[in-house]
Amino acid sequence: MVDLKNLIEITKKIISREDVKYIVGYKKGTYGFQIMPAFAYTPEDAEEFIYSPLCSKNLAVYTILEEKLPLKRGEEEDKRKIGVVVKGCDSRAVVQIIQEKGLKREDLVLIGIPCRGVIEPKKIEKMFPNQTDLIEVIENDNSEYIINIGGKTHKVPKNELLSDVCKSCEFPNPPLYDVLLGEEVEITETEEFSKINELDEKPTEDKWEYWKEHFERCIRCYACREACPLCYCKECMADTLNPQWIRRSVNLSENTAWNIMRAYHLAGRCISCGECERVCPVNIPLMELNKKIERDVKKMFDYTSGLDEEEKPLFGMFKPDDPEDFIL
């Protein structure tokens, strides 16, 4: 369990350091179960910080969203560190970016939080619709969420609200951090890849039927890309005009190509935070694609992303005895 006082105190201490620009954490949102990312520039700002099972957003995305705008004359680059509150998957995202040399370790201060899983916003909003007032959620020791609404206390079994990606999470503890808040979480048995295996065994036509329906619906808003902490290319292949890899028109062919492109570019990089699926406005199960690749990569190359900053990227290396049963 994260001790809130401890979180605020540590944040305050870090933000008081001269070499830290700001710290990204969570604070209460504007209504209901909403939580918003918060930016603490001063110790006072840190007072607002909270942490609860509702804090699903992967904050690692803010490390790469820092816009490097052209400096004005006489202006000097602010080289101070950025602090981020990271859960297991968020920390893995940071590790992965560092591994790819997208970030430098010394530019970051990581406040690690051993994560017991987060609530899927869609699920809780469905269970308790139309909540205007801000509601707090606490997890008790019996794997239940305690939800206080208008003086009435609801106890909900954790499994009913837990985010799907968390159900199969293998790394709830941040692999990389400067400070760790609380005890490491024990890893429980996971139901990893069960859904993937299920579809994988179906005939080709069934698979296509399944995905066709999903891809047809895609509106190509690219929210999956923007919300992903690992989609940080300066110019995305989907946006280049010369050559134009995929057309901008929205139809099955282009939508499929986009979704293949997105999933493939996360091969050996996706850290299963589930952010893409969470933001998708048309409910495409994007994590199933990511998980499928994750499983293959693990099976074929014994590779897991986002654990070691010194590791080489999946596609930047090889083993002479990589599987080649598919080669003619």
Binding site: A38, L65, C221, Y222, A223, E226, A227, V279
Partner: peptide, 10 residues
């Protein structure tokens, strides 16, 4: 805190 996802406009 905006991630620039564009969902609002779509």
């Amino acid at each position: 805190r905006c991630v620039g996802c564009g969902i609002c406009t779509f």
